[in-house]
Amino acid sequence: MSVEWPLWEVFIRSQHGLAHKHVGSLHAPDAEMAIRNARDVYTRRNEGVSIWVVRSADVHATSPGAKEPLFEPANDKVYRHPTFFPMPDEVKHL
């Protein structure tokens, strides 16, 4: 028997209350071992206070070919950024 352990994606939340962030991947036979391994590999220097692991096969992603139809429409909508609106210097708290 030679079965390769499945691949897991690892997400870590740092101490500062930010969202979990993808840090890398690893192989493990199950979720429990994936979390143990993630702890050994990705939190050796106090990088995190919480770990998520997800089977890589369960991650659904946009395809690189769809980049333009998906993301380009945002390009011509600069008014969604506050810097689009020039404000007079003498007006405060805006």
Partner: peptide, 16 residues
């Protein structure tokens, strides 16, 4: 280490 890798898979399968 082969037996360890195989045992880990067997254990995961059994639990599942």
């Amino acid at each position: 280490g082969r037996w360890v890798r195989e045992a880990a898979v067997a254990c995961a399968d059994k639990r599942a």
